[in-house]
Amino acid sequence: MIQCAECGHDNMDGLEYCDACGAKLPATAAPTPEPLPVDAPPDVAVAVSAPADTPPVPVSLNAVALKAKLTITRGGTVGKEFVLQTGDNLVGRWDPDSGAFPEVDLELDDPEARISRKHALLRVAERLSLEDIGSLNGTFVNRGKRLDPGSPVTLTDGDEIIIGKTFFKVSVS
């Protein structure tokens, strides 16, 4: 996605002019090469964008927010920890060209690029929730079925999540 600097409209990669206001878009930020899984059907169109209107999660200051962290258990630097901040934590890969500045940045732990630049959101409030925001290779909890993009699920201490091909243990206290 290229966000229009003038009106904020999200435009598809490769477009020359903003669909909404006609502003010239910056020379297409070359997307990060991201090989598809070998068995991926080649003709499946995948929309990979966070819905623009996802409301920010209100964080009550009075409520005691959880403390949560993720630990890589497989498919990356095993044992690496990510302490989550209160509010939204983007899980993805750092890519300034597309405006992806994830809190949980897996750029170094994902040599095969199975993780989308904007892959999932972890929200720390009174509960910890996980939402897939339109990733290519999917998000899974406790090896269950692939999460539906845009539908958050609640996580509890000890859950295992899979993001792309990287496995994490969830700690909540």
Binding site: D13, P31, A113
Partner: peptide, 16 residues
């Protein structure tokens, strides 16, 4: 085509 080569990317791409 506007481009002869395009990057294999995880995202949809517009080509003229």
């Amino acid at each position: 085509s506007s481009r002869d080569a395009i990057l294999s990317s995880a995202e949809n791409f517009v080509l003229y």
